[in-house]
């Protein structure tokens, strides 16, 4: 399966297993989603459970909060992550705080799925990587799979999670990676990073769509890189990061979100707090830039390139 099929399979499994699950969003029903992620689900599970909504992102997330509070398990789709900022108010003001404000009496077991990231020559506001906003808002889990197997297992975990989860789907690799994915249900736990590739010279950390391109770049390097796929940034698997950096003493972090306050900054801070004296060189980050995401003809200048990744590797290895 590819990532799209794996997510579809996760939704199908959960709709079948749990009557409380409801999928809602723009074009998710008859059309099966603009990326066909929900293809065939409405036909199979009915229009009460796979629901085309009005074109209103705030309304979709707001309604999902209420559905979740009153016993349902909504999985909302926001068509592109650039449209997450109208509902961000609902997420920040309510979804993330209801457990606390009601002292556990009311909870929001809700998933908001949204494709994110650049590299597909899309329109403006269709390419953003806003994970740091959600991580910084507190009270929401932030999950970003990089491959089909994880996409399915993490989404099932997210749907079963008792708290709100932002599930960011790597649009650039929706169909670019294929691997064996079981038709049946399974989970990949939230908060556990995956060591994609063991290595001894340096640690390279990435997540989501950038993982594939980071791996490709490292194939051209002679160093033995330990590649970590974070899989979730909230909760963050600090332990796996620290153990690896303690072993290698060198680290590069790659993400396509802008540099300032990008998630790499948080990882560097944790490395400094927990294993600064194991470092042989300052940690390098390869990120997007502090500019609005460029239009199609310029996006390759923005996205972390093979050249920039290898340059950072060479720098920490010096």
């Amino acid at each position: 399966m590819n990532v799209v099929e794996a997510i579809n399979s996760a939704l199908d499994n959960e709709l079948k297993k749990d009557k409380r699950v409801i999928v809602l969003g723009e074009d998710v029903g008859v059309n099966g989603g603009v990326f066909r992620v929900t293809d065939g689900l409405q036909k199979k599970h009915g229009s009460d459970r796979v629901v085309d909504t009005p074109l209103a992102e705030l309304g979709i997330v707001g309604a999902s909060i209420g559905l979740a509070v009153n016993g349902m398990r909504p999985v909302a789709e926001i068509q592109f992550s650039g449209f997450m900022y109208a509902p961000f108010d609902q997420l920040f003001t309510h979804a993330a705080r209801i457990r606390g404000r009601s002292r556990g009496r009311f909870t929001v077991p809700m998933v908001v799925r949204t494709p994110y990231g650049g590299g597909i020559r899309a329109l403006e506001l269709h390419c953003e990587s806003g994970e740091s906003f959600f991580a910084h808002a507190t009270g929401m889990k932030v999950v970003i799979p990089s491959r089909p197997y994880d996409a399915k297992g993490l989404l099932i975990s997210a749907i079963r999670d008792p708290d709100p989860v932002i599930f960011m789907e790597p649009m650039r690799v929706y169909r670019a990676i294929k691997e064996e994915v079981p038709e049946t249900e399974y989970t990949v736990p939230l908060g556990k990073a995956n060591i994609e590739h063991e290595g001894s010279d340096l640690t390279v950390i990435s997540y989501g769509a950038m993982l594939k391109y980071t791996k490709q770049a490292l194939e051209k390097s002679d160093y033995s890189a330990e590649i970590i796929d974070l899989r979730t940034i909230v909760p963050l698997d600090t332990e796996t990061i620290i153990n690896s950096v303690k072993k290698t003493g060198r680290c590069v972090i790659v993400h396509e979100a802008p540099k300032t306050c990008g998630f790499a900054a948080e990882i560097i801070a944790r490395i400094n707090e927990k294993c600064f004296f194991n470092l042989e060189a300052p940690v390098e980050r390869v990120t997007g830039f502090d500019v609005a995401f460029p239009l199609a003809k310029s996006e390759n200048h923005y996205l972390p390139s093979e050249k920039r990744i290898l340059k950072a590797v060479d720098k920490v290895m010096k």
Binding site: I22, A63, I65, G66, A68, M72, P74, D89, T93
Partner: peptide
């Protein structure tokens, strides 16, 4: 927050209807 409670009240009512 002013008025921000209205969308999820609708979601809650929707859940009652579905159930």
């Amino acid at each position: 927050g002013v008025g921000t409670q209205e969308p999820y009240a609708v979601g809650c009512a929707w859940a009652s209807k579905l159930k």
